[in-house]
Amino acid sequence: MKIKLLDIAHGRSGDKGDAANVGIIAYDDKGFEIIKKHLTEDAVRKHFEGICFGKVERFELPNIRALNFLLHNTLGGGGTVSLKHDAQGKTLAAALLRMEIEV
């Protein structure tokens, strides 16, 4: 069965220099197991092809059922230099939640 991440998780994103931070939080423990399994660094990098041009780092916060990703080389030079409409990567959490996964 295919599900959209939006149905099992929420999150927030922002800027850290030229990197974007994308935090994804599962609504329950089952959801956390799913995102932990499917949101690998590789999967996230592939998802953001054409947006993220650097490496993807993943960190776990099991205490709040969350994963935090750092997407390097993503914001077109960083918040103040970037020509992007979304220079701070504010909409990138929603962009990751578009992902569909097979469970």
Partner: peptide, 10 residues
């Protein structure tokens, strides 16, 4: 929780 993950690294 959303605010906790905002603009954090490790």
């Amino acid at each position: 929780a959303e605010q906790l993950v905002y603009e954090i690294g490790d």
